[in-house]
Design a binder for these strands. Sequence first.
RNA 1: GGUCCCAUCGUCUAGCCCGGCCUAGGACACCAGGUUUUCAUCCUGGCGACAGGGGUUCAAAUCCCCUUGGGAUCACCA
Length: 492
Amino acid sequence: MSKQPRVRFAPSPTGKLHIGGARTALFNWAYARRHGGQFLLRIEDTDPERSTKEFERAILEGLHWLGIQWDEGPDLGGPCGPYRQSEKYPQYREVAKRLLASGHAYHCFCTTERLDKLRAEQEARKERQVYDRLCAKLDPTESARRVAAGEKAVIRFHVPPGETVCIDHIRGDVRFSHEEVDDWVMVRSDGSPTYNFCVVCDDVDMGITHVFRGEEHLVNTPKQVLLYQALGQPMPEFGHLPLMLGTDGKKLSKRTGDTALQDYRDKGFPREAVVNFLCLQGWALDGTSVLFSVDQLVQHFEIKDVQKAGAIFDPEKFRWMAGEYLRKEPLATLVAHCTPFVVEAGLATAEQLSARAKWFEEVVKTEQPRINIYSELPARIAYLFQPDDAVATNDAALAAVRKHANTAQTLRDYREWLAPKIATGVDAAALRDTSKAWAAEKGLKLPAFFQPVRFALSGEVHGADLFDVMVLLGSESVLRRLEAAASRLAAT
RNA sequence: GGUCCCAUCGUCUAGCCCGGCCUAGGACACCAGGUUUUCAUCCUGGCGACAGGGGUUCAAAUCCCCUUGGGAUCACCA
């Protein structure tokens, strides 16, 4: 690398940040950091119909959340601005004028109707559907006159004969014949520039040295490369990242699951897990490490190590990884991450939780091995917030408890035995042994003892350690719930 | 259909560029055990792939060709 690389991520604000885009951003950013270069953010909002400020903000937010910082961008500014394409129309017009003058581009007056008809005919003859260059044959001064007269026209790029090879660090060199490239539209009849045109202008303006983007752009590359040549600008090196695929093997879309980064954030996937997992779609730290940090990514990321084949996005593995990170979180951090979800679920207010901070911390600690994402917590701990005489239950749990005989009696007996022991507080460790001894003495099999008690306390037959649950509930609640369940089981 | 890209366990991948260390490694999932009052966590083991066919070579997952399969893209969208 002769000089510092400059790379960019250039989303168009026509939707929330796609996880594929997030990965593209991540790889670009990692590359810049790895090689001591700059990472820029550019907003490609040349489609006024679909672009919104709202989406732009959401995208920046998503990027921030991932922990990606850019060196130049629409919010930060920089020496190569503006970083929003909608603010650069005068510049594009200038370039188009130059290209027109140098004969690399021409005005095309063909109507949409003629173009449609042309395509239909080519289709019928099973030919390639390309523009027939009718207007390329027009005399430039004649064209200029018609344009001056107010006639609607687009500006097309005049593709010269020949062939070109472009450097792709992932795929190797990609060779293409100019024959295959259409005389594409650079400027629409309303004067607005098109994507392929803006991209090149901007990448030139911003001194971009490496273009890493999704594979769907591979077919655009020839058009863009030709433009670099026409402009007399050095070509950047490319890297077309493998597509992220849905379980159907096709490009990931809303059909096959959540595609927006925000969806995963909203569901409570730990940030580090998202970053880690996204990186694993097409890249690996080494053969064996699955879990790695952003620092490790930056330390080892090489674009040539990126996989060529598309990667099917596996939500299952993603959830597993989320759990791995969640389990490693320091308790205070996990509490902070979970709190909004508990509040959102209506279990308690943030104030109520902070008033019982120590207690809530224990609650979270108890569930930490049992949840994979933050949003799973509320449902699991809801029982702690319910009235002692109205603990929610489900049929399956009830049915399981009913399999045991004399459960009401068991609960009452246990309650009676337990009451004096927890009068001054619950000691989980002590109770664990003595309770089992008590059950044994009563001639109860362990499940016949534990299941009804658990059911009484939480309405479930599965869950955290029973005596930890008692600690969380407190003596009074425990005794009340034991009684309430006994009554209920006796009644039916 | 044209053009382009791709091809290792069901999935993510290591190995491929610079052939031998590959009787192909790791992870998810799955299955079977162990731990636990249950669930989860955790631990152990198992299952399971070089798409097919030709070359080249003493030797090919690795290089070449063909076939097959999959994908992307064919706009005055990005």
